[in-house]
């Protein structure tokens, strides 16, 4: 299994990462090394092992449908890069 340069560029685009050509080359090499290492798992016979959805042996952890106080507006927007009238001000989209 080998990741192409084009695939790395595509993933970088999806992650909104602006990479230089050198960085794309570097990450292609590094990501391929990681994938090669993970590929060692394929040597194991897992035909009798059920797919794992979660690493903890837990299921059905629920809370009751009860309303609790929210955080106050001033605290919520305190860390916003930009704020206006209790809203998060964000760059224009579309």
């Amino acid at each position: 299994m080998s990741l192409t340069k084009a695939e790395v560029e595509h993933v970088a685009m999806l992650a909104r990462l602006a990479l230089t050509d050198d960085e794309v080359a570097m990450y292609t090499t590094q990501l391929n090394a990681i994938l090669d290492y993970a590929q060692r798992l394929e040597a194991l016979d897992t035909s009798a092992v059920a797919p794992t959805a979660h690493v903890f042996p837990l299921h059905n952890v629920f809370r009751d449908d009860v309303v609790r106080p929210s955080m106050e507006q001033a605290k919520i927007v305190a860390n916003a890069p930009e704020e206006e009238d209790g809203f998060f001000r964000v760059p224009r989209i579309v």
């Binding site: 449908d65 009860v66 309303v67 609790r68 106080p69 929210s70 955080m71 507006q73 919520i76 998060f88």
Partner: peptide
């Protein structure tokens, strides 16, 4: 439901902006 899917914030429609919010849903 009365509360949100993963936290206790109310699901009530409307409300002043960012007043039905907590660190979990944020």
């Amino acid at each position: 439901t009365k509360s949100k899917i993963f936290c206790g914030c109310t699901t009530e429609f409307g409300g002043e902006q960012n007043t039905h919010v907590c660190p979990v849903c944020l």
